[in-house]
C-alpha cells in the first residue's frame, strides 16, 4: 500500500537514538525535515532540547553533518556555515537550523532577523513547544496566554502566562522574506511539503512548526500528534504561507472544534476559568477575522 508522503522523502534515518522524551514533537519535526533534506543537509541546533538529546559524546544521533550553536547563534552560525561551504566551492547542500521557541523568538531573534535581512540561503525551522522545555518548562515569548509554566504559576491571582504568543510568522514575513510558513506536526504531510518547497527556494526560508511537548503540556506521550492536530482544528493555530509578498491560508477548518476541549485536555491549561477561555476564544476569532481579510485562500 503506497504512502505518497513516505515515498517522497528519504528512507534513511538522520536523527536516531536520541534521548528526547517519549512522544517528543520536536524530535518528530527534526526527523521529518531531515528526511526531506537528506544527506547533504547541514544542521545547526542551538543549546536546547534537540541538541541536548542528540549530541552527547560519544552518543551522536545525527547521521548528517550537524553542529551545536550558541543559544543566540542559530541563524548566525547558519550564515557562517553556508558562507564557508560556498567559499570552499560546495553547491549541493542545505544549511538548516532547528531552534525551539525560546531560541527563536527570544534569545535568537536578533540573529534570525539579521540572517533574513541579508537573505542568506538557509532554512530556519522553529520547532515551537511553547516554553523553555529543556530547562524544565519556563515561559518563553511563544508561550500562549493562560499556560501554566514553572515561571508562570497558576494561582488565585494570576492564571498562568498573561501575554499572548509573539507572532513570529508575521515577524519573519515583515522582513519580506522569500518564504515563510506555519505548520504543525499534527499535519505532517503539510509540514513535509513546506520543507520540500523551502529547499527549492533561494534565500532565507522560515518555517514555524508547532511541536507539542507531552511533558510540558501535560498530555500523554501518545497524544502529541492528536493535540498538534487539534490546535489547528480549533483555530488556535493555522497553516499558512508567505511568499512573493502575500499571505496564503493552506487549510481552513469548516467549523472550529471546541477551544475549551483543546485546553482542558492539557495540564498546563486545566486551571483556566470560563472567563479565561472566553478571552482565548475571542482572541482566536479576532485573529481569524484578520486572516480572512488578509490571507488568500
Amino acid at each position: 500500500m503506497a504512502n505518497k508522503v513516505a515515498d517522497s522523502i528519504s528512507r534513511e534515518e538522520y536523527f536516531y537514538g536520541h534521548k528526547a522524551c517519549a512522544g517528543c514533537g520536536g524530535s518528530l519535526a527534526v526527523r521529518a525535515a531531515l528526511k526531506v533534506l537528506g544527506q547533504n543537509a547541514v544542521s545547526v541546533l542551538p543549546a536546547g532540547c534537540m541538541s541536548a538529546v542528540g549530541f552527547n559524546f560519544p552518543q551522536l544521533c545525527f547521521s548528517n553533518n550537524s553542529i551545536i550553536s550558541t543559544f543566540a547563534g542559530t541563524a548566525s552560525m547558519l550564515t557562517g556555515v553556508e558562507a564557508g561551504l560556498r567559499a570552499r566551492g560546495y553547491k549541493d547542500f542545505t544549511a538548516v537550523g532547528f531552534a525551539g521557541d525560546g531560541g527563536t523568538a527570544d534569545i535568537g531573534i536578533q540573529a534570525l532577523s539579521g540572517a533574513i535581512d541579508r537573505n542568506d540561503n538557509i532554512i530556519y525551522i522553529c520547532y515551537d513547544n511553547e516554553a523553555y522545555m529543556n530547562t524544565g518548562i519556563q515561559k518563553s515569548g511563544l508561550t500562549p496566554f493562560g499556560a501554566k509554566t514553572t515561571t508562570t504559576p497558576a494561582g488565585a491571582n494570576i492564571h498562568g502566562n498573561i501575554r499572548p504568543k509573539k507572532n513570529m510568522f508575521e515577524i519573519a514575513a515583515a522582513h519580506d522574506i522569500p518564504y515563510a510558513a506555519t505548520a504543525s506536526v499534527g499535519y505532517l504531510p503539510d509540514f513535509i511539503a513546506k520543507v520540500q518547497k523551502a529547499s527549492q527556494i533561494q534565500g532565507t526560508k522560515y518555517i514555524h512548526v508547532i511541536a507539542p511537548c507531552p511533558t510540558g503540556w501535560g498530555v500523554a506521550p501518545d497524544a502529541t500528534v492528536d493535540i498538534a492536530k487539534e490546535v489547528v482544528d480549533c483555530g488556535l493555530w493555522y497553516l499558512a504561507e508567505y511568499e512573493n509578498g502575500s499571505f496564503k491560508l493552506n487549510h481552513k477548518p469548516k467549523e472550529f472544534t471546541d477551544v475549551a476541549a483543546y485546553l482542558k485536555k492539557q495540564g498546563r491549561f486545566r486551571h483556566l476559568t470560563d472567563e479565561d477561555i472566553q478571552m482565548i476564544t475571542a482572541s482566536r476569532d479576532k485573529k481569524w477575522d484578520y486572516i480572512n481579510k488578509n490571507f488568500e485562500l
Binding site: V42, V44, I67, S69, T70, A72, G73, A75, S76, M77, L78, T79, G80, V81, E82, A83, G84, L85, A87, R88, Q110, A111, S113, G114, D117, R118
Partner: peptide, 22 residues
Amino acid sequence: YVHVESEHSALSCAIGASAAGA
C-alpha cells in the same frame, strides 16, 4: 563578506565558517 548584526553574530558566523573548513 558578511554584514552581521552584532558582535555575537560576528564570531558565531566565523565559527560556522571555520566549521565549514573555511
